[in-house]
Computed example of a mutant assay.
Amino acid sequence: MTSTDNQPSTSGDSKLARWVVIAVLAALLAAACILGYLGWTSTDTSVPASGYVALVLGVVFSLVVGAGLMALVFYSSRKGYDEPVVLIPEPESDPDDGRGPH
Rank of each mutant, 00 (worst) to 15 (best):
S3D: 02
T4W: 00
T4R: 10
D5E: 12
S9Y: 00
S11P: 00
S11Q: 04
G12F: 04
G12H: 06
K15S: 08
A17Y: 01
R18Q: 04
W19T: 00
V20A: 05
V20D: 09
V21L: 11
V21T: 04
I22H: 00
A23W: 03
A27R: 00
C33I: 10
I34H: 07
L38D: 05
W40V: 12
P48Y: 06
S50N: 12
S50G: 13
G51P: 00
Y52K: 07
Y52W: 14
V53H: 13
A54T: 05
L55D: 08
V56Q: 10
L57D: 13
G58W: 01
V59H: 01
V60A: 10
V64L: 04
G66S: 12
G66T: 11
L69R: 14
M70N: 14
M70L: 15
L72Y: 15
V73A: 15
F74N: 05
F74R: 10
S77C: 08
D82I: 01
E83Q: 08
V85H: 09
V85G: 03
E90Y: 11
P91F: 12
E92A: 15
S93N: 12
S93G: 06
D94A: 11
D96M: 15
D96F: 15
D96N: 15
D96I: 06
D97L: 13
G98A: 14
G100Q: 11
P101T: 15
